[in-house]
Computed example of a mutant assay.
Amino acid sequence: MVKIGNIKLGDFPLLLAPMEDVSDPPFRAVCKENGADLMYTEFISSEGLIRDAAKSVQKLDIFEYERPVGIQLFGSDIETMGSCSEIASRVNPDLIDINYGCPVKNVACRGAGAALLQDVPKMVRMTEAVIKSTHLPVTVKTRLGWDESTKNVQEVAERLQDIGIQALSIHGRTRVQMYKGSADWTLIARIKENPRITIPIFGNGDVDTPEKALEYRDRFGVDGIMIGRATIGNPWVFNEIKHYMKTGEKLAPPTMEQRVDVCRRHLEFSIKWKGPIAGVFEMRRHYTNYFKGLEHFKPYRMRLVEAMTFEELESILKEISHNFDEVTC
């Protein structure tokens, strides 16, 4: 049984990675319904939260059906991160996660995210500040290092465990790699094999099929897998992996009716969270992903992104289900 503090996650949990502009409450809802064991909010700027910026505050929204769920924070100032840990704890998530892995320029070049891999002592002090400011378990997500010559994640794992983090998720690339090339899980495996390491170690990067999930579990010995980009338009990937690990057999691809049903659920959650106008607008970026690979779909996509009401969208989705009923993706 894998545990983070008192949170029981099963024998081999599958985690939804925090993704900016993707893993909001509606998306997390459909991932939960399709087998995700632990999910995280989009990463929240500590500076934005301190300033009470609307976008940052809204990302604190969590719901009972999501549990267990963690709030992920990022920032460059130690005192601010500690204060934000207190603020985030008040909405009662199950854990607080710190982002030391985001590689994008406007985060890393401001001294946050993966930038802390260049200053491990500061990373340690920041993590201590977060831990001291909350009663909740604190976890960390990071990368192998800043670049090929500074892969220091083994040192990071030991030092952060020593000060009290309760799980570590590692993306198998450096910051310089961004999302290019192949993820290297060999360092992740070495951390898991380190007798000093007793906290759960979750691997992240390039897991996009049930076969790869099983291979990586057996080959690298991780306690669980965090999945990011492979879930976009494909939230049932969690149940597909679980079924394959349990039976050795692959589930049939989702039918068009199943795709439409999940898309509709996503839309319903979006409207419930954001309201009938913003909820419809927020869903527009997801339709291409749900119906990726369909021939002659462009006219339907245009209608979906131009529709203004749930009733219009419901009618279009029914039409898609009917006209593509024998298609699997």
Rank of each mutant, 00 (worst) to 15 (best):
I4P: 13
N6G: 04
N6W: 05
L15K: 04
P18Y: 07
E20L: 13
S23Q: 07
S23R: 08
D24P: 00
P26W: 05
A29R: 08
V30G: 06
E33F: 02
N34T: 08
N34S: 03
D37F: 04
L38Q: 02
L38Y: 05
E42R: 09
F43R: 07
I44L: 05
D52C: 13
A53H: 13
A54K: 15
K55N: 15
I62N: 11
F63Y: 14
R67A: 09
R67V: 06
I71W: 04
Q72S: 07
G82V: 06
L95G: 06
L95W: 00
I98P: 00
P103N: 03
A108C: 11
R110G: 13
G111F: 05
P121G: 14
T127M: 11
E128Q: 15
E128H: 05
V130E: 06
I131M: 10
T134F: 05
H135C: 03
T139R: 08
T142F: 05
W146K: 00
W146Y: 08
D147M: 11
E148Q: 13
N152D: 07
V153F: 03
R159L: 15
L160W: 06
S169M: 12
I170E: 12
H171Q: 14
R173V: 11
T174F: 08
T186S: 15
E193G: 00
I197V: 13
I199L: 12
G205C: 10
V207E: 03
D208C: 14
E211Y: 03
I225P: 06
I227V: 14
A230D: 06
P235I: 09
N239Y: 08
E249P: 00
K250M: 14
P254Y: 07
Q258A: 13
R259V: 02
V260D: 04
R264S: 14
E268A: 09
W273V: 13
A278E: 13
F281E: 13
E282T: 12
N289L: 09
Y290N: 09
F291I: 02
K292H: 10
L294S: 12
H296T: 02
V305P: 00
V305T: 13
M308Y: 06
M308I: 03
E314G: 04
L317H: 05
I320N: 10
S321E: 15
H322Y: 14
